[in-house]
Simulated assay, not measured.
Amino acid sequence: MSRHYAPKYDETVAWIRSKCPPSLQHVHIAVICGSGLSGLVDSVDKDREKVVIPYKDIPHFATSTVQGHPGNLVLAHLNSIPTAFMVGRFHFYEGHDLALTTYPVRVLALLGVHTLIVTNAAGGLNEAYVPGDVMAIKDHISVAGLGGRNPLIGANEERFGPRFPAMSDAYDPDLRRTFFRAVKELGMQSIAREGTYCYVAGPSYETRGEARLLVQAGGDAVGMSTAPEVVAARHAGIRVLGISLITNRVPYRPVPSVSHEILGTPVPPAEKNQAPEQVVNHEEVLEVSAMRAKELQGLVRKIFELLPPPPPTRSTH
């Protein structure tokens, strides 16, 4: 991350704390709400303090421009745990540098966050997945990161973590176990999955050839967020639970040929009896998110009830 942002973290943290009562001066858990998942914040304890701060008012924050991303930082209690909700996130495709996209994650670390629950709406690559499934992320493939778009590029911020942080354990296994315990208690086994999330820069959806490449690489779902936030969080020593709501099937069969229609050549064998695949659109993403909103709220609350003890604290000041 660029040194350009280094002097601003403490200023942002101090400003946020100036808006909070004593019980929310330090938060322990953060939840990043993906497209259409802003309803997760409705799970907070109704009888405790709640602070809502628009991103546009927070010093050095960007603003979210995407439909389904309201753009508020909400500090409240969930199951009596001081929690920060990012209701909407920033994306590289909005024109933000990744240093700015992941800036809130480092602010959250300085606010005391030791556990991050990051959610997203994602397209299903795995043939077994259907819209409405909920996937615990066990690994990710950052296509943009492999191409040089990593939020840690630039001078290392030693106060957060080492120059070369490991990502082979990016998604905490104990938190994933907690996810599936919550799933079992709520009777959601039929829609629960566990798989690998692929991060692409967007904002265009994938071509069929690109989708096939991701499938061959082991991807189960694909989206335009999450991986940069997870990299920044793990660099700061924050443990991560990633949850993808599968909102659509990603078309990945070869694009149908048309040459035979004109030249009379044989139809390629792979295309015979091939059913048409639906084109992806953002409205579909929001519709499925709305359909699963209440269940996801219940799942997040149950996860909070079952959370394992936090890791030993490590100061980032």
Rank of each mutant, 00 (worst) to 15 (best):
H26T: 15
V215E: 05
V267I: 15
N79S: 13
M1K: 15
G88L: 01
E305C: 10
G219S: 05
R253I: 07
D42W: 03
R177M: 12
L73G: 12
A84S: 07
P254V: 00
C33I: 02
T83D: 04
L263A: 13
S80G: 05
R249W: 09
L175M: 03
R48W: 05
V222H: 02
G147C: 13
R292N: 12
T115Q: 04
H235L: 00
W15K: 05
E206K: 05
Q189Y: 09
D97A: 15
M86W: 00
R234N: 09
H114Q: 15
R181M: 10
H28W: 03
L40C: 04
P268W: 05
P162G: 02
G95P: 04
G123I: 02
S257H: 13
H235D: 01
G71V: 08
V44G: 01
V222E: 05
A136E: 06
D133F: 05
L116M: 06
V240C: 13
F160E: 01
T12I: 00
I32P: 15
T316F: 13
S35I: 02
D172V: 08
L108D: 00
A84L: 03
I29M: 04
V105H: 02
I32E: 08
A192C: 10
N150A: 03
E210P: 01
G68N: 04
I262S: 11
E210K: 09
E284Q: 12
N150M: 03
M291V: 11
Q25M: 06
E158Y: 08
E194P: 14
N248A: 07
I191L: 11
V74D: 00
W15P: 00
V27E: 00
K272G: 03
H91W: 00
V250C: 08
P21H: 08
H96S: 13
G264L: 11
M135S: 04
I153W: 14
Q297K: 14
E210R: 08
M86Q: 13
S142L: 06
A217S: 14
G161C: 01
L213W: 12
T119L: 02
N150H: 10
D172N: 14
E157H: 14
P308A: 05
F61H: 09
H28V: 05
R193Q: 14
P7S: 10
R212K: 10
E11C: 11
R181W: 06
P269T: 09
D174I: 05
A290M: 06
K138W: 09
A270D: 12
V258G: 04
G123C: 01
A166R: 14
G209R: 12
S142A: 08
R249L: 12
R208K: 13
I153C: 14
S38W: 07
P203A: 07
S38V: 03
R163A: 11
L152P: 08
L75A: 04
T101S: 12
P70F: 10
S64H: 01
S244F: 07
S80Q: 14
P59W: 13
R234L: 01
L37K: 06
D97F: 10
N126V: 06
Y129R: 04
